[in-house]
Design a protein around this nucleic acid. Structure first.
Length: 1043
RNA sequence: GGGCCGGUAGCUCAGUUGGUUAGAGCGCACCCCUGAUAAGGGUGAGGUCGCAAGUUCAAAUCUUGCUCGGCCCA
């Protein structure tokens, strides 16, 4: 031995240089934030994604269809989780050998972008209405493009692999053409109709507003009590008796919008609310000489009597009301209760509109009633004109009492609510259920239309319904009601202050107003175009499944009504499709089912600019849309060439061709709901020639749980409407990311966590490992402590790989030992690998990444680091390179290395590559091109498992027994321990067990530990009987060095 | 206000059809090693399973109510 130790003080030589320590350049410290971009660049340079496609060319496909994020703003933690999970799915499926391409997409149309552009205009003091629509749309397009670029870079930095150079955009011309062509499919199959819906409307800007364009401010408005005479009450016999006896009984409603009274069409009660009729004779507060004012009988909710009486000044003994708890009716001497009952008894009851009497009297010169049936300028050809009220028949029709239990309360008012389907959502929905339709009495500027019997445009008293004078207690509405003897109270002062929506732009009050909209019916069997019957005004039972007002009847299919029973409705198709789809987690099925079961018809139209137009021609005479395949094809072709602008800028006569005259048609300028756009992504991406890698239908859609109402549903409905089935085989949903305390993140709370910051500090692999660790099926958290934990897990894993790299340095094929020739310990570990391998595969197929990483980490930690590697350290460091045991160990380690680098590759995409390149440097290669490791199922050996399970248990007993001695400083290293253990309880020899426990010696006896007398080998540090003096060599080491 | 979902150690998660003393990893404390060293090994302390009733011989598990949080509606 020539290389004697240098330290002169030591008597014994230092054998350190003769020990085969792990050798590697792989750094312990990751420095991911710096390293990752370079790795990304290399992948891009070698065309990794294309290489992967090429290598999986003939493999089974797995199509994850990307749900498009909205192209607006930087990505947030939710995007990061979503895209990472998608990447985990794609990469893990690819690892399993499948061809799993990924085409990312963006949602580009819609209000938020439109808004941003408008905002820019406002800053430049430019009026949007003066900008040509094509210019406006071009700016929206440019804006979306800008954010697509930003987000694309952010997603790439996350390590998400995909076709980033050719993503799909909903604003691409081909996409817009497909969207319009899908829309026309709905039109052609009769699954489109024109109906109405109350929307928030600004009479000042004469436009519909979105929720985000509305702000709420306190206003004072006139609050009135109005009496409706009850004409029938078939389910309340006593009440009916009173009516039959000639009593004039009035139902009282209370409202803060007096201007809606002239369009009242019904009254709503709460079925469980208790009502009373009070009778008295002293009401003379308001002018007018109707009989009932002198001798009144009012129907009202019992609980609200007090407030009512106060408003009317009916109560002469106010002090009696001091007790808030007791709101029982206290009858003044001159006020009596003549009827009590539940709201449900009012079912089927009828009342008379307070203006009916006035209007049923022919007016002197018809001035007020207008001439002819002149359509309003709002929607001239619309067959949705509604009631023609010039002969006042609208007002003389009976007003039914409807069950409004879902929204009628006794919080304020009278417990009876007046219903105007034109001007309220509750009103609209309830009336629709009973076949009562809106009448469109108020025009876009907030003034009653010309032919309306009550305050038409021509009336000098008529004003905008948002005008304070118009609704004032002494304004025309109140005055006329007073004249009719129906106004019981009217008040406007500070006490009537309440919150009311205003336009953000003009600050003017807005109203709910029914406007014509396009709908997809949920409950109409497709292909059959049975016109919906004329709604009955009087209809005590809800109309089951009635879609809405006037269905548009197109030319096709009206004859085969007989087949209607065989056809399924869109709702039925969707429910069936849900049953045919796999949901991960399973609870998603329940959620989307209940939503589809309960959802109303799909409103497709928006009165907006930035979107795909509803490219239809409306027949001016009939109001029906033109349904001609040739015309439709010309439209689609034009869209392919010029996008949606083709509709706005086109010569429409060209679309119509020779067969039709543009003068006979109106052009629809509404655009489509952006959810229809995204509902079509499966068509223009999966079925398109642009991405040959894609195919319909998708294996998986993967989005946040909010998309049960969003994309999952819009895609489902779109696909069921056009193809009769879902566009996906499986749907995976994830929860939302909360802050460290489980609270939702928001900018205002200042608890948001920026994914970019995590990437720049810790690295994308840490963020990815976090995403893979949490239970994404639920809401989950992120915060410093959690990220620290993730980083620790990462470091442990990284170090295990580093150890393997060191142990495997200079490993050569010639050294390899076949698993069957390996010692039991190696075979046991390979058995464990086989078990873990199967578990990991199962987790991947269940998209269970949390269990996947936990299985992987604990295998690396418990089985390898703390057990296998620890035991075999002596072998690796000190046995001769040619020793079969050492060769077997390194062979096993090589198998583990190949398996584990592949296992972590989908999650730790950068680290896996770094590890791989560290051992097998090759500029053109990548770990991500590899397939799932070839783990031999035959390695699984249950007998071995039982035996070694037992050994490990005893091993734990031994280490436990050593601990007290170590604590008492009797021994230091476990190598100094001499252990006694009943050998008959050991499935292996004591000699072997000594090695497994890393102790000095093991002899028969009851479990006990003492310090050994042996001396320490100067090279391998084992304490052995053959070593005469500390620092001498043991036999084995002697052989290795000198043999 | 309504529909749906969730609350198990400091953190991330297991916990089968109710069934011994509720588990794991990380972190933490302590100890060892200094030949995986800004590493490695060992031991240990942490939980009235969100709260309260109920069903049962027996409840983290089933039922009801409440509470906190989330998503979607209104």
């Amino acid at each position: 031995m020539t290389d004697t130790p240098k330290d002169s003080g030591a008597e014994k030589p230092d054998y350190k240089d003769t020990v085969f320590l792990p050798k590697t350049n792989f750094p312990m410290k990751a420095g991911l934030a710096n390293k990752e971009p370079a790795i990304l660049e290399r992948w891009e340079n070698i065309g990794l994604y294309q290489k992967l496609r090429e290598s999986r060319k003939y493999a089974e496909k797995f199509i994850l269809h990307d749900g498009p994020p909205y192209a607006n703003g930087n990505i947030h933690i939710g995007h990061a989780l979503n895209k990472t999970l998608k990447d985990l799915v794609v990469r893990s499926q690819s690892l399993l050998g499948k061809d799993a391409p990924y085409v990312p997409g963006w949602d580009c149309h819609g209000l938020p972008i439109e808004w941003k552009i408008e905002e820019q205009y406002r800053k430049k003091k430019r009026n949007k209405d003066e900008v040509p629509p094509s210019e406006f749309r071009a700016e929206c397009r440019e804006y979306a493009d800008k954010w697509v670029d930003v987000q694309r870079e952010e997603f790439k930095r996350l390590g998400v692999m995909g076709e980033w150079d050719t993503p799909y955009l909903t604003m691409d011309y081909h996409a817009e053409a497909t969207i319009v062509s899908e829309l026309l499919k709905f039109a052609e199959s009769g699954q489109l109709y024109r109906g109405a819906k109350p929307v928030m409307w600004s009479p000042v800007e004469k436009t519909a507003l979105a929720e985000a364009e509305v702000e709420y401010e306190d206003i004072t408005s006139t609050q009135i009590d109005v009496a409706f005479e009850i004409t029938a009450a078939p389910n309340a016999p006593k009440l009916q008796e009173l009516i039959d006896a000639g009593e004039k009984i009035h139902a009282v409603i209370w409202t803060t919008t007096p201007w809606t009274i002239p369009v009242n069409q019904a009254l709503a009660y709460g079925a469980d609310i208790e009502y009373v009729i009070i009778s008295g004779t002293d009401l003379n507060r308001w002018s007018g000489d109707s009989e009932h004012l002198k001798n009144y009988r009012y129907l009202i909710a019992k609980y609200l009597l007090k407030d009512f009486k106060l408003r009317l000044g009916l109560d002469n003994e106010r002090e009696e009301w001091s007790n808030e708890e007791n709101r029982e009716v206290r009858i003044s001497p001159n006020i009596k209760t003549i009827w009590e009952g539940k709201g449900s008894e009012l079912a089927g009851a009828m009342a008379k509109h307070p203006m009916a009497d006035v209007l049923s009297i022919p007016l002197p010169d018809g001035e007020r009633l207008g001439e002819g049936n002149k359509p309003s300028d709002e929607h001239p050809t619309l067959s949705l004109k509604g009631e023609d009220s010039k002969d006042a028949s609208f007002f003389t029709k009976p007003r039914p009492f409807l069950d409004g239990s879902t929204f009628v309360t006794t919080e304020a008012g009278t417990g009876l609510v007046h219903m105007s389907p034109d001007h309220g959502e509750d009103d609209f929905d309830l009336c629709k259920a009973y076949g009562i339709n809106p009448v469109f009495a108020v025009d876009g500027d907030g003034v009653y239309r010309e032919d309306w019997a009550w305050l038409p445009r021509g009336d000098e008293r008529a004003g905008s319904v948002i005008n304070n004078k118009f609704t004032a207690p002494d304004g025309p509405i109140c005055n006329d009601l007073r004249d009719a003897g129906a106004l019981l109270s009217a008040k406007r002062d500070e006490s009537t202050k309440h919150s009311y929506p205003h336009s953000w732009r003009s600050k003017a009050k807005i109203i709910y107003r029914c406007t014509p909209q396009w709908f997809v019916p949920m409950d109409k069997a497709s292909q059959t175009l049975e016109p919906i019957e004329e709604p009955k005004t009087v209809c005590p039972e809800p109309v089951e499944g009635q879609s809405a007002t006037h269905a548009s009847t197109s030319s096709a299919g009206t004859d085969d009504v007989q087949n209607a029973a065989d056809e399924l409705t869109l709702r039925q198709k969707a429910i069936k499709a849900i049953a045919d789809t796999r949901f991960v987690p399973e609870k998603g099925r329940n959620r989307i089912s209940s939503m589809v079961e309960g959802r109303p018809d799909w409103v497709l139209s928006r009165q907006r600019a930035w979107g795909v137009p509803i490219a239809l021609f409306l027949d001016r005479k009939t109001g029906d849309y033109l349904n001609d395949k040739n015309v439709n094809n010309r439209i689609i072709e034009a869209f392919k060439k010029g996008g949606a602008d083709a509709w706005f800028n086109a010569d429409h006569q060209e679309f119509l061709g020779d067969a039709y005259n543009l003068d006979d048609y109106d052009i629809v300028t509404d655009i489509l709901d952006v959810w229809f756009d995204s509902g079509c992504t499966h068509v223009f991406t999966l079925e398109s020639d642009i991405w040959p890698s894609q195919s319909w239908k998708a294996d998986l859609y993967l989005e946040g749980s909010d998309q049960h109402r969003g994309w999952f549903q819009s895609s489902l409905l779109e696909s069921c409407g056009t193809r009769g089935e879902a566009p996906y085989k499986a749907v995976l949903t994830h929860g939302f990311t909360m802050d460290k305390n489980g609270k939702k993140m928001s900018k205002s709370l200042g608890n948001t966590i920026d994914p970019k910051k995590i990437i720049n500090v810790n690295g994308a692999d840490i963020l990815r490992l976090w995403a893979a660790s949490v239970d994404y099926t639920e809401d989950h958290r992120i915060g410093d402590e959690i990220l620290k934990g993730v980083t620790d897990t990462y470091r442990k894993l990284r170090n295990t790989f580093r150890y393997m790299l060191g142990g495997l340095s200079d490993f050569e094929e010639s050294e390899r030992v076949a698993p069957s020739d390996m010692p039991e310990l190696e075979r046991y570990i390979l058995h464990r690998l086989a078990i873990v391998d199967a578990q990991l595969k199962e987790h991947i197929n269940n998209f269970a990444f949390g269990p996947y990483m936990r299985t992987l980490s604990s295998f690396a930690q418990d089985d390898l680091s703390a057990f296998f590697f620890d035991i075999r350290k002596d072998c690796l460091y000190c046995d001769a390179p040619s020793d079969p045991k050492r060769r077997a160990y390194r062979s096993a380690m090589d198998i583990l290395f190949h398996a584990l680098t592949r296992y972590i590759a989908p999650v730790l995409v950068f680290t896996a590559e770094e590890i791989w390149q560290s051992r097998f440097p090759n500029e053109n290669d990548s770990i991500h091109l590899k397939v799932w490791p070839d783990v031999d199922a035959a390695w699984q050996d249950d007998a071995l498992n039982d035996k070694w399970g037992q050994i490990r248990e005893v091993r734990i007993q031994v280490t436990e027994a050593i601990e007290p001695l170590r604590r008492d400083k009797i021994i230091r290293s476990s190598l100094e321990a001499e252990v006694r253990y009943p050998l008959k309880d050991l499935p292996i020899s004591g000699e072997e067990f000594t090695e497994l426990c890393i102790v000095a010696d093991l002899t028969d006896g009851e479990l006990s530990v003492t310090k050994t007398d042996h001396h320490k080998c100067g090279r391998c540090w084992r304490l052995l009987p053959e070593v005469n003096e500390d620092g001498d060599l043991c036999g084995r080491c002697e052989d290795v060095i000198h043999g």
